[in-house]
């Protein structure tokens, strides 16, 4: 097979295969076996397994199917947060544009042969050392702008993955570079700033009532004003959140 002449000196490329079809996985395994400089460190049948594998094993490269149950390839990319180089593998050429928008190393269209895979591997080798890898959530945010608002938020909690429909969220609190998403009395941390996330949410549902808080309007019970003039929002579960002056103006626009 096509083997790079310089390959022996390099550490093996640690690859994770992600595809929900067993045949597609075995095909990749077979083709990769011909590459001495590649080591398969994980084989995942769905996106959730892939996210776990990325957290535990930290592969050098993901061979990632796009259409999978629960989490698709783009969701996986968003969840693994730090940028693992990705080669997308799919039968749908319609995804090509989006794949390169999120800086995929390559895009393999099924069916593909060993030569095409070797080419993609070479390309990912050359990309490995380079520092042009941006945090994926930022890239995804750029891509998503102008698309329909998020209908769910994906959160990785170590190796656990939470898929949270936005209507279940009570409010979102900013914590420096993180946001705490409040759901069913629990707080889940996500590595993203509140400003970035707020832009992706439906403005008719979530209102930035304060620099630190975005509130799900359906949870709002009442607004109270204290003697000093500061306002407080009371939520259905009794939680009280401060409302800033500009936040109050935004709130009034929506109510």
């Amino acid at each position: 097979m096509s083997r790079d002449a310089t390959a022996p000196q390099l550490a093996p490329l640690r690859v994770a295969i992600v595809d929900d079809e067993p045949l597609a996985r075995s095909y990749l395994r077979e083709l990769l076996a011909a590459h001495d400089d590649v080591e398969i460190v994980a084989e995942c049948a769905n996106g959730i397994e892939a996210v776990k594998a990325c957290a535990d094993i930290k592969p050098d490269l993901l061979l990632l199917d796009i259409q999978m149950p629960k989490l698709d390839g783009f969701d996986v990319l968003e969840l693994i947060g730090h940028a693992v180089p990705v080669i997308f593998v799919t039968a749908y050429d319609a995804f090509a544009v989006r794949a390169f928008e999120v800086h995929a190393v390559d895009f393999l269209l099924k069916p593909f042969g060993p030569e095409r895979l070797a080419e993609a591997l070479t390309r990912s080798r050359s990309r490995l050392g380079s520092a042009d890898l941006q945090p994926v959530h930022r890239v995804l945010a750029e891509v998503r702008t102008g698309r329909a608002p998020l209908s769910r938020i994906l959160i990785r909690d170590r190796a656990d993955v939470h898929v949270i429909p936005v209507e279940k969220i009570d409010y979102i609190e900013s914590q420096d570079d993180y946001v705490a998403v409040r759901v069913d009395g629990r707080s889940l941390l996500k590595e993203q700033t509140l400003s970035e996330l707020a832009e992706l949410l439906d403005p008719n549902r979530f209102v930035r009532i304060h620099r630190r808080y975005a509130l799900n309007l359906t949870r709002l019970v009442r607004i109270e004003q204290s003697d000093t003039g500061s306002r407080t929002a009371t939520l259905r579960d009794g939680t009280e959140l401060p409302i800033s002056r500009s936040g109050y103006a935004r709130l009034r626009e929506r109510l």
Partner: peptide, 17 residues
């Protein structure tokens, strides 16, 4: 057409195994 592409991919995978 995607059904065709995916099926061909499966055939391609099966030919050796």
């Amino acid at each position: 057409p995607h059904f065709m592409f995916n099926s061909l991919h499966s055939i391609s995978a099966l030919t050796t195994t």
